[in-house]
């Protein structure tokens, strides 16, 4: 009986995750499709932001529903490592963009 409840709960979690993943993907593709199909319907920056935001939420959905990372104590190590990785990658990528962008503005803008 208990086992069956677990199974149902797990199935529901996976299905919720799948549903959210599909919705988020459709939103991103939809934004691009709309911009392509109906010129002037939404601005380019809106499209870019939509893709970026849905992607970020998509990452969270995958962690939460498929990799079972949540805020419980037993998952704390994993969560900390994921957040730390995110921080380091952010530092590396943002730093690189800043430095090379700055150098480009100062030295290569004429090219």
């Amino acid at each position: 009986m208990n086992r069956r409840d677990d199974y149902r709960r797990e199935l529901r979690a996976y299905l919720t995750g799948l549903g959210l993943a599909v919705v988020l993907s459709v939103l991103a593709f939809g934004a691009v499709g709309l911009a392509e199909g109906v010129p002037g319907a939404i601005s380019r920056s809106t499209v870019v932001w939509t893709i970026g935001l849905t992607a970020a939420v998509q990452v969270v959905v995958h962690f939460r529903y498929f990799l079972h990372i949540d805020l419980t104590r037993s998952k704390r190590d994993d969560l900390q490592l994921i957040l730390f990785s995110a921080l380091i990658v952010l530092l590396m990528v943002a730093g690189t963009l800043w430095i090379l962008g700055d150098l480009r503005d100062r030295m290569m803008a004429v090219l």
């Binding site: 921080l87 530092l91 730093g95 700055d102 150098l103 030295m107």
Partner: peptide, 20 residues
């Protein structure tokens, strides 16, 4: 953590702006 925030000090003279 801080060790990932300082790498430019190896090439201060490469030509990026004073802000960086």
């Amino acid at each position: 953590v801080l060790s990932f925030t300082v790498w430019v000090h190896h090439f201060f003279t490469m030509g990026q702006s004073a802000d960086v």
